[in-house]
Design a protein around this nucleic acid. Structure first.
Length: 190
DNA sequence: CATGGGATTGACT
DNA sequence: GTCAATCCCATGC
């Protein structure tokens, strides 16, 4: 999608990205899980202000923000809101739709539900790495495309974000209800 | 320049 | 359920 899609409140974009398609290097999957992050809350990398790492986060919307997690995994985000605001949507899980065998090779696993059911898994499956940080999501190499017709009316559930220690109460995680490719079930306990 | 902490995953008890 | 792997980056001396 074009930058205008991302130049809106990050929580809205996180919900609207469910059902859209991420594509890179002959592989593609439908987004079934996202989380919103905003520089006003301490779980967001941009909370510390403008640094070399957060430069892309504070830049124009519609770019990829890719960072290394736990020294091992790469995680993919879509930068949102106008330039000057540090906000992004973390892509947490996909349902694979193209390039399944290449994904299996990169992951070393066979089952479809093991290929992209987590933020570190999907970047490995699609071959997304830190070199993709800052790339234009409407031009590539990493591309996000609008929802296929079959995903037009997907039911979306909101819940608390996963794996963070700060601002844990915000209901900024969004899941496609019923998907078998989520990193964790959609409904968190109470 | 040294240090500590992750927006995680997979293997193991 | 627990825990190590591993590197980037922000912070503090």
């Amino acid at each position: 999608m074009k930058p205008a899609f991302y130049a809106r409140p990050v929580v809205e974009v996180a919900r609207d990205l469910i059902g859209c398609v991420v594509a890179h290097d002959e592989c593609a999957g439908v987004i079934v899980e996202t989380e919103a992050y905003h520089d006003s809350e301490p779980a967001c990398h941009a909370y510390v202000g403008l640094t070399e790492r957060t430069r892309v986060l504070f830049g124009p919307p519609g770019r990829a923000y890719v960072y290394r997690s736990y020294g091992i995994h790469a995680c993919l985000n879509a930068v949102c809101e106008p330039a000057g605001v540090g906000a992004a949507v973390l892509i947490r899980a996909l349902e694979p739709v193209q390039g399944l065998d290449l994904m299996r090779m990169r992951r070393g696993l066979e089952r479809v539900q093991d290929l992209c059911s987590g933020p570190g898994k999907l970047t490995q499956a699609l071959g997304i790495e830190l070199v993709d940080d800052g790339c234009d999501l409407s031009r590539g190499p990493v591309v996000i495309e609008r929802r296929p017709h079959a995903w037009r009316d997907t039911n979306v559930a909101a819940s608390k974000r996963i794996g963070i220690t700060k601002a844990t109460e915000l209901p900024w995680r969004f899941c496609a209800v019923g998907s078998r490719c989520l990193s964790r079930p959609a409904l968190s306990r109470a």
